[in-house]
Write a protein that binds this DNA or RNA. Structure first.
Lengths: 354, 354
DNA sequence: CTGAAAGCGCTTACAG
DNA sequence: CTGAAAGCGCTTACAG
């Protein structure tokens, strides 16, 4: 063991115990110690000697060195738009848990809603030699993803597709969920239903838009384009869109906000204006389970299956990494169902009219 | 470049471009390429040759290999109780941003509110050879932390102290914040003020408890032990404690919930029971800024300076890593002020009585 | 089962 | 400025 007069230690340098030290103390070769460390069989006497050496020295394998040799770091990179979005954190938690079971750890990177950072962080993940990547695309550009592909690193996409790359993807049935939500409002008697969407070219927003239209058509409702508002899916933009709907001359009797941020923005405005839900307005939110429970009255929301998204993505990357199914296997697309969770925020329009 | 008939590539293995390839293509030694990669001066002609080789080959430095040699991975581990707690994610975001400026990346580990995992994740961080660790302790045990210390890896603690280790620590002035919150209720005329705390031995809970007592004493209030409820700082325990206060024969006219989860739990119950805030009850929450804004009427809360906590922690670890101040420097303790953000949930008791 | 040797991709004194 | 060589800590055929 490094003596306390070791100049390296005195300087505060890390004086790592290496496999060499273990071998020396155990009186064996490093090859044998390595074999033991990796679960191989060694003679009982040797096993004891090694275990003792490890304990006395406090040896811990250096996975950086191991990774250099094995060319596997047993690490999966997770790249998301923002770590401050609860939608992402729940997914990350599920991914981590699932991967840990298989002996993989994760490196989480967020790009802070910045397209340039998305590319840089992908770069960092690759430099760190992650074995695979699970990515929730932010910019929608293929370029950062292509870097991983070029390097032969498997990528699993979650939440949305990206044009220009064909990869395993875990999606949610956004269209159907939006259709259900809007249908329930129509069935409650609403005829003028506003919707706050995201950017026009965003995959999830497009699907939710389609679902809205489908519900209207099914019930023979004429679609008023004034009721369809695009936003940036952030709080300020969501607020503007929601306000625009409220302030319409012929304002909607119900509004559907289609992601967490726009739902939150709506809550702020409703609170500020002192609107009575559902008397003044019916409302369905998205992705905001905890907010939905606190809100008075309890909000109806569309809930995405966050746990399952994470677990599925982890499963898919593990399959790619184990080579079962393997490199050659075609890209798979998993579409998960979500859930409409009923609260009391969607009053019946007939009751109101009565 | 690896030809497309390369068997490794055919198998889907990663055929990394290495510094050797760059050197060969550029017609130089790997030492020179390495020098260039690390910002050293090379002849202009050589620089051009190297840059060209890098571009054509798509070379990316292998930081795993570099780390093995330099004994610095330029990575800081962040160990937190749960990635699903918004209090943590905001801090993480701040840490990441700050460290990125200095060229460090972060590996975030959460222990999922599991003491055993806290120890294992610390182990994983050390195996990954992180240069330093920022930790929000969960179990309060010194054992996991000691592992890092033994290995000479600097650790910065945030949010709470841990007995048995002396380390740089970033804290919030919990006592004072709680004192302010309770004082404001007393000044509004409340005499029976309930408080939902966390576990008795938890650092932050103890401080908030002390602040409560201090406010009472300052205003000459007799403390009724029935009004002080300990919980596990989770939602179910928080609900139970809050309900117990509500159902007291002589129930409090105001309640202070002292972390995010117990505040959320209170919101659930208030919503379920249809309590009118502040007519039926005055209420001050904690750590729940977004919830506070949605709540009707806007909640008064104690807000911790999450951004600053993260930035300060990052700053401290960078100083330890740069050796400025250095290894020998004594442990520092930074106590940050928080903020009482006023809403409308704390009505005046006099008004009610009138 | 065990050990000597080569090598993963890089950096770093040290000569030249 | 440049290059040959050693070595970071590990694993992995290959002999023995």
């Amino acid at each position: 063991m490094a003596s306390s007069s070791d100049p390296a230690r005195a300087r505060g340098d890390r004086v790592a115990v290496t496999i060499k030290d273990v071998a020396r103390v155990a009186g064996l070769s490093i090859a044998t110690v390595s074999k033991y460390m990796n679960g191989g069989h060694v003679l009982d006497d040797n096993r004891v000697a090694i275990e003792q050496a490890i304990t006395t020295l406090g040896y811990r394998v250096n996975v950086v060195a191991r990774g250099l040799k094995t060319r596997r770091t047993m690490t999966v990179g997770v790249l998301i738009p923002s770590i401050e979005q609860i939608f992402s954190t729940e997914i990350i938690a599920a991914i981590e848990k699932q991967l840990a079971k298989a002996g993989f750890s994760t490196i989480v990177c967020d790009c802070q809603l910045d397209a340039e950072l998305e590319s840089r962080k992908m770069e960092i993940l690759l430099e760190k030699q992650v074995d695979g990547i699970i990515m929730m695309p932010f910019s929608g550009l293929a370029e950062p993803i292509q870097k991983a592909i070029d390097q032969g690193v498997p990528v699993i996409l979650i939440d949305r597709k990206v044009e220009g790359v064909i990869l395993d993807t875990v999606l949610v049935d956004n269209e159907n969920l939006a259709r259900q939500a809007v249908s329930s409002l129509i069935q409650a008697g609403h005829r003028r239903i506003g919707i706050v969407l995201g950017p026009k070219d965003l995959y999830t927003s497009r699907k939710r838009h389609t679902g809205y239209l489908a519900a209207c058509h099914e019930h023979g409702l004429v679609v008023d384009p004034d009721l369809i508002r695009h936003s940036d899916y952030q709080i300020p933009g969501g607020s503007a869109a929601f306000l625009a709907l409220l302030d319409l001359p012929d304002s909607p009797t119900a509004i559907f906000t289609t992601n967490y941020e726009t739902t939150f923005a709506a809550g702020l405005i409703i609170n500020e204006r002192g609107l009575n839900i559902p008397l003044d307005l019916s409302w369905i939110g998205f992705d905001s389970l905890s907010m939905a429970q606190i809100f008075k009255p309890r909000l109806t929301i569309v809930a995405q299956p966050v746990r399952q998204i994470g677990e599925t993505a982890a499963q898919l990357i593990l399959e790619r990494l184990s080579g079962a199914g393997g490199f050659a296997c075609e890209a798979r697309e998993v579409i998960l169902p979500g859930e409409l969770i009923a609260g009391l925020s969607t009053g019946s329009i007939r009751t109101i009219a009565d």
